[in-house]
Design a protein around this nucleic acid. Structure first.
Lengths: 160, 160
DNA sequence: AAAGATTGAAGGGTCAATCTTT
DNA sequence: AAAGATTGACCCTTCAATCTTT
């Protein structure tokens, strides 16, 4: 598929995905600003649970950010009473993070507004197109994830 | 398309797009790190030209970032000898930014590596799927852009 | 030695205020 | 008054170094 005359340049494809992300992100920020939440803080809240705790390492892996970033985000969320650190009984190095009742309520409220906003924004596409897009994107995502550790880039990784 | 049983929740759709962006962005950073460039700096270089200058305002509009951010990015790029500020003859408030020969060479080199990297990463999809995706994403992007000024969000805009 | 987590220093980006020109 | 651009203060994120536990 690379050098076909009919093919779209990879750069243009990338540019579109990038534009969409920037546009969606801009809309997200408008929603999240009302709760004084950053995208990452919201991302953390969404991965958490009231019952089973998540390790900080797991969170940073899923959100592709540095370990120290998660530490500081949990610091803030804990200060705001939204989450709680619980020492892991089996491994005393690890901390498990759980949602407090307040955190759970907050997340539900934010998620509702966020989903409403998305529903409106994504209604650009028809149901058919929407489902097609979903299928294509899922395949792309899974493929990209599989590439993650294949080191197919120039130079080394930037993650700790 | 909203409350169909067959429909995919908007949040899940968003989550996938978000994941893809994070994955692509992570790959980009690995490429750009070799040149000590951030995504925004690269974005600016890509919008510039050796002949016709761009206003800083135009750049910040296209990249959806704050005016002051562009000012500082141009400061850095100018310090590195990649771009040059040229006072606008017709409007003495404005500055026009152009690529220096060094900047043009640098951009060509980065863009080549970036495109190669993208080519490899996006080869997950077949040509057919790739073209379909392109069509869907273009429609989505154009729609999102059209929404930009419709203020269909709770609360005010975050952009200056 | 390796993994989970945390801290200090530094860079990137934004907001609000300011200056100049229109 | 409004638009283009810049500066200072502040927040978010990352890197490198460190501590504890495995």
């Amino acid at each position: 598929m690379s050098s076909d005359l009919l093919s779209i340049p990879a750069y243009e494809q990338y540019r579109i995905i990038h534009d969409i992300y920037v546009l969606l992100d801009d809309g997200d920020q408008r929603v999240l600003n009302n709760f004084r939440l950053t995208a990452l803080q919201y991302g953390v809240l969404n991965l958490l649970d009231a019952d089973e705790g998540q390790r900080l390492t797991t969170l940073s892996d899923q959100l592709l950010c540095a370990r120290s970033t998660i530490t500081r985000i949990i610091d803030q969320l804990e200060r705001d009473g939204l989450v709680r650190r619980v020492g892991d009984a089996e491994d005393r190095r690890a901390q498990r993070v759980v949602l407090t009742p307040k955190g759970e309520a907050q997340r539900t409220q934010v998620r509702t507004l966020h989903e409403d906003s998305l529903e409106r924004r994504l209604s650009i596409l028809s149901l058919d197109e929407y489902q097609q897009l979903h299928w294509l994107l899922t395949k792309l995502r899974d493929g990209l994830r599989a590439q993650l550790d294949s080191d197919c880039y120039k130079g080394g990784s930037s993650r700790s």
